[in-house]
Design a protein around this nucleic acid. Structure first.
Lengths: 341, 341
DNA sequence: CTGAAAGCGCTTACAG
DNA sequence: CTGAAAGCGCTTACAG
């Protein structure tokens, strides 16, 4: 078995030079061939690729980033990994980016704009190829950093029609409105909105809820229960209990997230409150387990996987300098009516 | 307002040279001062740091990685982000590494050794400062890659006493044994083990279960229900139903993970099966919602946050070349007895 | 304790 | 279509 000719550097690493030598071309040509730049003779491309494979060449991302002033990393900044919503989003984006040689880096902001700003600073130092950001609520400094660095960005979850802005998501407001309208259509009149975390998207759902009930002449601000605590099943249970004690006439509850709603449903079971008989319960996001509840939870299926995929594809286009046909991509949502309403 | 003297490069970036010029030292000295290398006059360190702050200097990680042959990134490879266990682990490790200037990169293997191998190849090209890996079940190629690259590694979740190996975790086998023993102590005799995913740690729990029941003379292989499907609440419900149909005499079920157990509990509620009256139910990991179930779920609290923190700290030590006092760190586990057993 | 030289491994203009 | 030169921004030995 003959070892392919290779002259190892002191570092022991196989470099582009080794590949070029093996293929009998210059390093520049090898570089172009490997990156698939057009304008290299097909025969040379073939030779270079073979040499690269034979030597087991792995390009050095650090050297590439340094020379080209642009790396292959794509940071995605999300508020939380505890909400399965964002896990799905990230997984889908990763799957779409990875085959194109981009590396998705996950940054978790914990719903804190200052933390996002810090993460952004760190990631931008790495000369990212592009950026995936959640929503539009950030510090002025962060905004300026993004502009100054002229890095391609696609925004997730929310939509913006500002020219030059790329976004993939759906209307949180309309979704909040739709689920409230559904409860109205079921004959409910005293409909509460119970929310935690109070991030921008939650507040947009609240707006949809409000608008819908105002139009129906049924809006009562006392039925809006907002807690800044992080969302959890336990909290959902607690809030439902308090709500029913304070407002025994409530006949429906729209929880801003499924974990709260699941906790609410279990609480109702514990208290012997009939769902949907006495009170209807709806959630948001269709998280794991919502279909397993007793009764199964009515909720909104949000297209998080699709958002991840589409945003990644849009970003690929922007990074290639292409014109994006639909820079503000509304992926909609789907009302899932189950037993709880 | 006087702008600090700065001569911008064509790239517009403020470099170490700019800082050095401003401080009146050579770039090498500036580099050493900024990295806190000892052997630089205190006064110079001060001057360099001031210049750096005044200019808003941000070191270029790519250049640093290229020159030093070692970056500041620490990839952590975990099987899944859908299991909240690993989310907690990763968050804790991030929190411990970030203040030391290391960047945690998350790689998800989907329980697939080949996928892990691919991820490893990609990450190693980036010259990581260190590596955090889950368990010891990987391909031969992956093993060799790790050795060849001489990169500091700490293993998570499982323990190894092999010299030169660093690991932080607990004994999955003992935990499986402990929960089975608990069920025995409750007078249960027909104890089933229901598992999904069948990753190495799940199988270790199975061993603990088996050993415990064998010792008691109560082991019945027909009560071991193993499914290679991914773990979910839905699956837990399905498996419980089938199990009770096939073996109506089962009086306890040990689910290998809390999501399965939660699904099982809801199924019992649906079927009107009394828990723990007719059948006791136990889970594993103490995931979100387990304390909210009806009845609350007996489970094992696994020290995933502590594992993340301790592993990160151990890795910091290894990267600094320190001797690690306790290279095989057993963090134990805690039995949480609640209403379901 | 400080610095001049060389180099890490690639790619970007610029020629031909 | 191909290549020689220069440079990206830092750090590692090696001197002094």
């Amino acid at each position: 078995m003959s070892t392919p000719e290779r002259r190892r550097r002191p570092s022991g690493r196989i470099t582009l030079q080794d590949v070029a030598r093996q293929a009998g071309v210059s390093p520049i040509t090898a570089s172009r061939a490997l990156r698939g730049e057009r304008g290299v003779a097909a025969e040379l491309v073939e030779r270079v690729k073979q040499a690269s494979a034979a030597l087991g060449y792995v390009p050095d991302p650090a050297a590439r980033a340094l020379a080209s002033q642009r790396g292959t990393q794509v940071p995605v900044l999300i508020p939380s990994l505890t909400n399965a919503l964002f896990v799905d989003l990230v997984e889908a984006a990763h799957a779409a980016l990875e085959p194109h040689g981009y590396q998705l880096l996950i940054g978790v902001t914990h719903y804190d704009p200052l933390e996002e700003e810090q993460l952004l600073k760190g990631f931008l130092a790495h000369r990212p190829a592009g950026l995936l950001l959640t929503g539009f609520d950030r510090t002025e400094v962060a905004r300026r950093l993004i502009e100054t660095n002229r890095v391609p960005v696609v925004y997730l979850m929310e939509l913006s029609s500002v020219p030059g802005t790329y976004s993939v998501g759906f209307s949180q407001r309309e979704a909040g409105q739709a689920i409230t309208a559904h409860l109205l259509s079921r004959g409910r009149r005293r409909i509460a909105f119970v929310a935690a975390q109070l991030d921008p998207r939650t507040l947009q759902r609240a707006e949809g809820y409000r608008r819908c009930l105002r139009q129906a002449g049924l809006y009562d601000p006392r039925l809006e229960w907002l807690s800044a605590q992080p969302s959890s099943m336990r909290l959902g249970g607690e809030l439902l209990k308090e709500l029913l004690e304070r407002h025994p006439d409530v006949d429906a509850v729209f929880f801003c997230n499924d974990d709260l709603a699941q906790g609410g449903l279990l609480q109702a079971l514990r208290l012997g409150v009939d769902v949907p008989g006495r009170v209807a319960v709806a959630g948001f996001n269709d998280l794991a387990g919502s279909d397993q509840m007793l009764p199964p939870l009515t909720t909104v299926r949000t297209p998080r996987r699709e958002i991840g995929t589409e945003a990644a594809q849009m970003l690929l286009g922007v990074m290639r300098g292409e014109t994006i046909a639909e820079p503000c991509r509304d992926l909609g949502f789907e009302l899932l009516v189950r037993g709880s309403t």
